[in-house]
Each structure stands twice: as C-alpha cells, then as structure tokens.
C-alpha cells in the first residue's frame, strides 16, 4: 500500500529543501532526510518507498536546485500528482527519473489515505474507487525505464 502525502499550491523549493541544506553543506547521500525538513518535519521520517504526493498547482516553484527533486526522489516516492509543475522542477525530475503526473487528485485523495498505485495498469485504487491515470508521454516512459531522461541523453552523447 502507498500512503498519500497531501500538499498545497505553489510548494516552493525552499520548502522542499532549504538552501541551507545544500549538498555541500550536508552530504549527498543524506539528502533524502532533508526533504521538507522545516515545512513538514514528519515527512522524511515516515515516508516509505512507493508513497505518493498529491499537491496543488505549480509544485516545485522557485530555485533551480536539482537537489530538491533529488531529495524527494531519494525517499523512493512512486510519483507526484499535481495540476502543474514549475518548469525547472519538471525538467529536473525528468532527468532524474522522478515520476511527475500532471493531474489534480486533491478532491479524490486525502492526506494519510492508503491506496494501491498500479502504475502498469495506470490506475490508483483507493477504498473501492479506481482513479485512471492518463498515459504519460512516450519519451518520459522511456526515460523512467532508463532511470531518467539524463541517462538516455548521456547515452546518446557517448555515441
């Protein structure tokens, strides 16, 4: 089962990882522990691989710091669902292989709810309900398979 973590609109990168926790201020491998360290201190300790974030529009706005996306990716999240994402965050997530889904599920899924996310079946099952997930763009599917868009593009660069 996957737990739903609900967030509001315009979640900025200073909430995800404040600048003071930049990798060279801490250590790379510890980054996951700093996800939402001040904005939601219970998150990093309780989040489990496979969990989902459900948020409002413009998730990840603000800084270009890729370590915001990286910190969330390191927690093992299976996906972030929001009506829209800040463009730099979207590119960072695509490069890293963190799965973003442009969908508004705020009315459907509440914080703390336990669901079953069947990515292959493109469906979230929540207490008898089935929420269909729109087919992601083909390029992103390939990128996720490869461990991120960067892995695909670097493979091309090496050729």
């Amino acid at each position: 089962m996957a737990r739903i973590w609900s967030f509001g609109s315009d979640v900025d990168t200073d909430q995800i990882v404040p600048g003071r926790y930049a990798p060279y201020m801490t250590r790379d491998e510890e980054l996951g522990r700093y996800a939402f360290i001040e904005a939601r201190p219970d998150f990093a300790a309780a989040v489990r691989p496979g969990d989902l974030i459900v948020a409002g529009p413009n998730f990840g706005c603000g800084s270009s710091r890729e370590y915001a996306a990286q910190a969330l990716h390191l927690t093992g999240l299976a996906g972030i669902f929001a009506p829209s994402f800040a463009r730099i965050f979207y590119r960072n997530a695509a490069n890293l292989g963190l799965r973003l889904f442009e969908a508004d599920l705020r009315e459907e899924l509440g914080d703390g709810e336990e669901v079953d996310f069947d990515f292959e079946g493109r469906v979230i099952r929540a207490g008898g309900r089935e929420l269909a997930i729109e087919e992601p763009p083909e390029l992103l599917l390939r990128a996720w398979q490869a461990g991120g868009l960067a892995a695909l593009l670097f493979a091309e660069a090496r050729r």
Binding site: A69, I88, R91, N95, G148, A150, F154
Partner: peptide, 9 residues
C-alpha cells in the same frame, strides 16, 4: 535557468 543535470548535458 536549469538544474544541474540539464546544465551538465
């Protein structure tokens, strides 16, 4: 602006 991986690419 872009993140580190996009810049690296």
């Amino acid at each position: 602006g872009m993140g580190a991986t996009d810049i690296a690419l």
